[in-house]
């Protein structure tokens, strides 16, 4: 009860911290809209050549693009959430402050990152998505229940995304410099997260593998759910499964990391 209020306060703080930077938000909205336009025209050209690529028609491909732009910052698909901050705190030794607090490191950052995600969804996600829906033919459902299920899937995706990035951030305890890990996160996010191409368009064995990785839980699964291409319950199960596994691994790595901690900087 008491700790629920603490982590709720941390989440509210995470939301408000990002809400402080209005210019960054406006710039982000602009960037996501422009990237969306570029991708939409590329996909339209591609789906002209290869109709029903990956089982999507053109409207679905366009919908996938705008969902991707809406969720890009929300889910920090290529990084850019709490993990760079945590890695920096490990590098400078400020993490000592996080460690002596009467709070759990993983839950603390999860709560803060959920707050950030929620802000990014509202602040950065909605506008590009609305622009896309207004100016392009899309494949969106009328069923409010399906929209509700989609929102549940997005929340689960936030947790999976956090769990991946938490592991990346913890690598800082061993690597000290997080630049390499961040770059790996960026590339895997783009490729495995479906920011380059929907995962169902990946051919053969590569596609089979990529669709089972945790990144599939971020954009691909919620998008398929919303467009009626996937069963909501199996989507939830896939996401929750990865969330439990990755958070569990994160917990193990966290206890190893804090045991070997040589807090930097005196």
């Amino acid at each position: 009860m008491g700790s629920a209020r603490l982590y709720a306060a941390v989440a509210v703080g995470g939301f408000r911290r990002y809400a402080t930077y209005r210019a960054a938000t406006v710039a982000g909205v602009f960037t996501n809209t422009v990237f969306g336009l570029i991708l939409v025209y590329t996909y339209l050209a591609l789906w002209d050549e290869r109709p029903h690529l990956g089982g999507y028609d053109q409207a679905q491909a366009v919908t996938f693009v705008w969902l991707g732009q809406a969720l890009y910052a929300t889910l920090a698909i290529q990084g850019g959430g709490f993990e760079s901050e945590l890695m920096e705190r490990v590098r400078t030794g400020d993490v000592a402050i996080d460690l002596y607090r009467p709070a759990d490191l993983q839950l603390w950052w999860l709560a803060g990152d959920l707050g950030r995600s929620l802000f990014q969804l509202i602040g950065r996600g909605v506008v590009p998505f609305v622009v896309g829906v207004l100016f392009f033919p899309t494949a969106l459902p009328d069923d409010p229940l399906l929209w509700l299920a989609f929102l549940v899937a997005v929340v689960l995706a936030m947790v999976v995304s956090f769990a991946i990035r938490f592991l990346v951030a913890l690598s800082g305890f061993w690597l000290m410099d997080g630049t390499g890990a961040s770059q790996v996160l960026m590339v895997t996010g783009m490729f495995c997260g479906g920011m380059a191409l929907p995962l169902n368009a990946f051919p053969g064995a590569l596609g089979e593998v990529v669709r089972q990785l945790p990144w599939a839980a971020l954009l691909q699964m919620p998008a398929d759910l919303l467009m009626g291409e996937a069963d909501p319950l199996s989507v939830f199960a896939f996401q929750a499964g990865w969330a439990v596994v990755l958070l569990g691994v994160g917990r193990l790595v966290q206890s190893a990391a804090t045991r070997r901690v040589v807090v930097q900087g005196g």
Partner: peptide, 28 residues
Amino acid sequence: GVVFGQRTTLWWDLPLIDSYRLMHRMYR
């Protein structure tokens, strides 16, 4: 209570009072 002079426990981006509200919850 701990104060590391060269580090801060306060939320950098937010008003001071927000950090205190957090302490209120954290230490119950």
